[in-house]
């Protein structure tokens, strides 16, 4: 009996009956991954233009990226903004999630959804709004302004992750700690926080990536010396297309997947 005649699961459905499912799944995977992966070979091209498949291979566009001050500055700006966003959004989001979760009730549900709106509203609206307001108070083109706007986008993500961790957490632990003589704040730091650690680290990394990958707000709010990498890429695409973009994209993919992978590994250990 060949493998495709064997049962694929407890349900007695054979692999043969499932062939269509495997094909469909492969096509979907393909469509999801190809646009991302296709830039990788393109980035190693010798050609002046984006081409696939490349006729000759070289690292010239990586050299180009690393030796152009415009790109290097933009990269530094992006890292700065993303790091600061992470440092602001993570504690704020965690505090909001904890506070709203513990107090419960209708009021905190409403507040929760209010804080979630940046996830629902089209980002372009937030971008236009912040551009307008920040223009008046002189925050356009500043790192501080960008960090503020990106924090607005990242806080909901932190809140969702921390809230879902709190759902499986037994708050009686904090009560016990209090009855044993610990102040409430100390109970939070010694009992609750260590158990939320993994979720908070996850949330922090996602906050970082949210800012690092963000384009629309950056287009509106960053410029000149404070352009982010994504904004610079967008301008480059508009003005002249060369494979530097592909090289940068490849590096960004590497960073994102690297972070996600380390999370998975951390998670595996956290679960044990």
């Amino acid at each position: 009996m060949s493998w495709w005649q064997k049962a694929a699961s407890e349900t007695q459905v054979t692999h043969r009956q499932r062939v269509w499912l495997y094909i469909l799944a492969t096509i979907i995977m393909f469509l999801l991954v190809i646009p991302t992966v296709i830039v990788i070979p393109m980035s190693f091209s010798e050609s002046q233009y984006l081409e696939f498949p490349p006729r000759e291979w070289s690292l010239r566009w990586y050299h180009e990226y690393l030796n152009t001050p415009r790109w290097v500055n933009a990269t530094i700006t992006s890292f700065k903004v993303a790091t600061l966003t992470m440092l602001v959004a993570t504690p704020f989001g965690t505090m909001a999630a904890y506070g709203l979760f513990v107090s419960g009730g209708r009021m905190s549900k409403m507040l929760f959804f209010t804080l979630m709106t940046p996830m629902i509203v089209p980002v372009i609206l937030i971008a236009i709004g912040t551009f307008y307001v920040f223009g008046r108070i002189g925050l356009v083109n500043s790192i501080f302004g960008l960090v503020m706007a990106h924090t607005v986008l990242s806080v909901p993500i932190v809140m969702i992750i921390v809230t879902s961790a709190l759902r499986t957490y037994d708050l009686n632990q904090e009560r016990v700690a209090q009855s044993l003589g610990s102040t409430r704040i100390r109970a939070f730091f010694e009992i609750t926080l260590p158990q939320l650690k993994f979720s908070i680290v996850t949330a922090a990394l996602l906050a970082f990536l949210t800012s690092f990958d963000e384009v629309i707000i950056s287009i509106f709010l960053s410029g000149g010396g404070n352009s982010t990498l994504t904004k610079q890429m967008f301008s480059a695409l508009r003005d002249y297309i060369d494979p530097t973009i592909a090289a940068i994209s490849t590096l960004m993919i590497l960073l994102s997947t690297g972070l996600m992978l380390s999370l998975q590994i951390l998670g595996g250990r956290g679960a044990r």
Partner: peptide, 11 residues
């Protein structure tokens, strides 16, 4: 406040 009451508690 609970932490000043000095009661043992089992949940």
């Amino acid at each position: 406040p609970p932490h000043k009451r000095g009661v043992g508690m089992v949940f």
